[in-house]
Design a binder for these strands. Sequence first.
RNA 1: GGGCAGAUAGCUCAACGGUAGAGCAGGUGCCUUUUAAGCACUUGGUUCAGGGUUCGAAUCCCUGUCUGCCCA
Length: 486
Amino acid sequence: MSLTQESELLRLRKEKLNYWKSQAIDPFGGPYPDTQPIEAIITTFVENVSVRIAGRILSIRDMGKSFFAHLQDQSAKMQIYANPQSVGQEAFNQLKHLDIGDIIGVEGECFLTKTKEKTVRVKSWQLLSKSLRPLPSKWHGLHDVEARYRQRYLDLIMNPEVKKVFFNRSQIIKEIRHFLHQKGFIEVETPMMQTLAGGAAANPFKTFHEALGIPLYLRIAPELYLKRLLVGGFEKVFELNRNFRNEGISRKHNPEFTMLEAYCAYGDYRSMAKLLEELIVHVAQCVFGTLQFPVSKHLAENKMVDLTPPWPQKPFREVLSEAIGKDWFALDEAEKRKVAMEFEIEAKEEFTESDIARHLFEKLVEARTIGPLFVTELPADLVPLAKQNKLKPEFVDVFELIVNGQELAPGYSELNDPIVQRERLEKQVGEEKQKIDEEFLLALEYGMPPAGGIGMGIDRLTMLLTGQESIRDVILFPLLRPKEEK
RNA sequence: GGGCAGAUAGCUCAACGGUAGAGCAGGUGCCUUUUAAGCACUUGGUUCAGGGUUCGAAUCCCUGUCUGCCCA
């Protein structure tokens, strides 16, 4: 990071700008239209066919009167070759002033070298953008994790497998939208800046609107607005966009993350479980052509998640009982705290029995389940926005989809009774420091159709389907602390 | 928030108390099907920052910064 060294390398490259100018060539020229993707040229390769490509020079092998380089575009990379006969003496001499990292356009004919590498014989070429900085080592690439996140563009240039993950992410999102549109859902956009941050239990980011002079929160969930739309008469809505939670950062958590929420009037958690299963299977098949995905190495070595439907469903009571070896809900409080001790779960004084159950569940069930598994009928006080079970009022009609040791998606029979909803929210407000969204309750009082809802973390889904162990590897620009200025 | 690990040339890494090195990238030559091209010569460092110990510190100690992993 020495400034003197940096300026030495920079200085030499900047000198080359003068060279190009002396040759009457704009070092930041263009445009260069009508190019073909390199991948297409390679897959349908025909010798002696003329092609036109553009991309970044990744390597150069200058052999005097023979010049080889690799050019990388969005799709792939391909070798180019030039000699004085192919491009003419003047253009050839100029070509040899190119640096690794420069972006050029090339026209020429396809041929195979002695070693059968598919190559373009350059007939004409054009400098499109001069690179003033050296690329990372062509052989070792860029491995420094911090540099990969901070300078993601270098990561994308040097590491094709990283580029692939983000291609896949784009396809995953496209197929989710495609699937939901086909099912008759409409995509909506609701406020990301909210006067109250509701719809989940999480700490929001706070900001301020100058003109109105009011505090605003970045949303922690779109739920309460999407439900207003159900009241308004939209029957199938979804939103696929960013949520923000002002909490810790980890392998599984980024402060901003992408969430799908979908609501279907006249449905319930069972119909939504079916929809979700269908959706994920659709995405996996369309994008990856398989239903087998590697399990996180943190959970198990060399195992696969099998997404072949139907996926099993088990009540919370049952999975928790299996995990602790006795029926949790038959225990009194002292016994419950004893169980917590036994499994080394923190059981602070202020923790309710439900809190302890939640922690036990997360540690003993969620974190150990490969899945996919729908855990159904959660304790009511864990889920304030869901409908109570008719036969067992201490449980709610919900599921949590667990895959790969993580909660991937919850689904509810949405609570549409405004009076019960108020009671539940008031109880929650008592426990945490939140205000009640009166506007939401007002909407419910006009009547919300019974509905099923789901939420799915897109980052986690992408992690599963692309085999990434860290959420930072499926988010292009994960949040990092800024580097101190020197 | 706590524990562990890391930060050395543009990149990837050595050196572990005694003159900071290598490969690639860069520079100057030679070379008309190379491919981690090759050959010769060559430039490049506030060893993350600041203190301390020592005759002497990249190396040992302390503080801080940033990153990764684990735990809460």
